[in-house]
Design a binder for these strands. Structure first.
Lengths: 350, 350
DNA sequence: AGAGCTTACCCAATCGTTTGGGTAGAAGAT
DNA sequence: ATCTTCTACCCAAACGATTGGGTAAGCTCT
């Protein structure tokens, strides 16, 4: 382990004194990788400096450095909630990638509440983060415009908004994959549990599904799309609405989120329907649970870690003054028991 | 929103110049709550200062402050993985409580790997965090001793180790509650999916269960306790081992973690056993999923947010030089369908 | 009227780094 | 022999906030 915290922390000046040279020389040696920058010191001196730094366990004080350089090497990350597995995984990607580039990341939860978003962003800016990774962008809000106007460097993650730089899953494609899969299995009566209408993830997955479904010749009306919360309770409620609408129940359900799918599965069971036989269910994100459920859940696998990593790379480019294009990573469908069999015969015969 | 980032950031000196007074006076006014500290300024001046600070959107530079005060108001949090719902929730508690006290928290994942733990701790210390909240302590390791010797302020969270300050769930009690519940329901043949032996959570829940079980007159041998990973795959594997051991299958399963319980439920189903009828299953932590599963899962509810908050309070006390006692928060049992009915008759009759 | 106390400030050093701008001495060019 | 160019350093001023120690003016008290 690096430095000793107990006694005194070793500073540049300490090293300089011990070596009989000026602190600035030490700084330059340690600062500039292996090449001795601009002839700041002789090879021999540089070696001595590095040797002593190692021996004393020198570790530069980041606050002192950033006071001078006006860079904190800090990234602020805002997510709806970290207890959402999807965001937590993306954050793991962020954390990894950030560390690789000498940055550290802060996370905060906004609970998807506009006021909290603002508060948290302010907190992060007060901490002087170099840039923000925003994982809770709403399609409508004015927040991003303001940030943009104030020239705060930021990128979006998971959800996109217009042409702001963002790292997302290609959710339209994801929706399309599900449509194709269900169509092929012979389903003709489907419903979508669509998520929150302010989130691009929900909107894109749903619209990808619907447009592909129709282009395959399928029929789906507005009634067949239920907007709901992203969690199990939301999925359960939405499924209830669908099953008690009076219409014959659909033979397949696409929930734009695994948790909503799990909630829906629970509700189906309460209605005496067997998932995977009476009704197919497909989720989204392929969270670690999906494959391990009592009835394994078909789900669209999205590369969550990579999305997090990509967000870090994008923000780096923004910090360099570039204006990177939105990046949409490709999802893949993982078919499992919840939708593996063909649609029930009576329906196909219809 | 606070300050304008685009132009120049407002500093103490700017305010002082504009008011025609010395920066130190401004600092003192802004620094000391509402009371004008030590007669640093007149009421009138103080008012003018605060007024202007508000108007200009002044926000103090934390790195500058901490350079001088030798305090960063930063807390480092290490968890096995943030994508573990339990830890994510505790972190939410930390984040809240920290913010309330003017601190910010950093999280990093160690994947329960001793080398990563060290690396991450070093990263945090390099960032000069004031203290650490360690959520991935191992019962055996020497890491904590070292930290202690180096006088790094830290507290443990979720898992305890010896008498180091810690904020945990009273896991022994949690195990006892489960034992009582299953005994009452008439179960006599039970198995425990015990988790990782290096984690106090696993060990305490298991030992609490076993000792209470025996004190009720129950029998349970070492064979009936299977150590496993904390995730669904771990629970599934453990359940498989139990079901294929050749012995008659148990009528109840206690998994020390909801995810392991979910994995076990899947495996039971694969063996044609119905959870809640043929075999009761009880989990731990009462994660949001438990209540919403197709077969709702009985689980021990632990106050995760509060554990996180408590950890913050404890570290504050450590920072003040105190040596707080370990805090063990009380769990409660939430009985649901997975274990609500009485044990199968043939077994009771035995 | 002088001592003593408040009040309301100001001064300057300090925290640890970084960085633009020296400079003395040696080597090389003409 | 003089001029230029390196090399290998040193100097000092930042960055923004905090804080121990002034001090001048005004008031009180005797």
């Amino acid at each position: 382990m690096g430095k000793v915290n107990g006694g005194r922390t070793v500073t540049l000046k300490d090293l300089a004194r011990e070596l009989g040279i000026h602190p600035s020389t030490v700084s330059r040696v340690l600062h500039s990788g292996s090449d001795v920058a601009k002839g700041a010191a002789s090879q021999a001196t540089a070696e001595r400096v590095r040797e002593l730094a190692r021996k004393r366990g020198y570790s530069p004080d980041p606050q002192a450095a950033s006071l001078r350089t006006r860079q904190t090497k800090l990234l602020g990350v805002i997510v709806p909630r970290l207890s959402d597995l999807v965001l937590a995984l993306m954050y793991e990607g962020i954390d990894e990638a950030a560390a690789e580039m000498g940055y550290s990341a802060f996370v905060m939860n906004s609970r998807d509440d506009p006021e909290e978003q603002r508060r948290k962003i302010d907190l992060m800016l007060a901490r002087r983060v170099d840039g923000l990774i925003i994982g809770d962008a709403h399609l409508d809000g004015s927040l991003l415009q303001e940030l943009s106007a104030r020239k705060v460097p930021f990128v979006l993650m998971n959800r996109r908004v217009q042409e702001y730089p963002s790292a997302t899953c290609d959710d339209v494609l994801g929706g399309e994959l599900v449509a194709e899969h269900l169509w092929e299995k012979g389903h003709r009566r489907v419903s979508v549990i669509a998520g929150e209408p302010y989130a691009s993830t929900a909107v894109d997955r749903t619209s990808g599904f619907i447009s592909r479904w129709r282009s395959l010749g399928g029929q789906i009306s507005d009634d067949d799309v239920v907007w709901s919360r992203f969690d199990t309770a939301g999925g359960r409620g939405a499924a209830k609405g669908i099953l008690t609408s009076g219409k014959p129940h659909p033979t397949a359900l696409f929930a734009v989120n695994d948790f909503a799918a799990i909630g829906a599965m629970g509700e189906l069971r309460s209605h005496g329907l067997t998932v995977g036989q009476d009704v197919a269910v497909v989720g989204y994100n392929d969270t670690s649970l999906a494959a391990e459920l009592p009835i394994p859940l078909t789900s669209v696998h999205s590369p969550m870690l990579d999305i997090g990593r990509t967000a870090v790379h994008l923000i780096q480019r923004v910090l360099r003054g570039e204006q990177p294009e939105p990046a949409a990573l490709k999802p893949t469908l993982r078919v499992r028991e919840s939708s593996a069999s063909r649609a029930p015969a009576e329906v196909r015969a219809r």
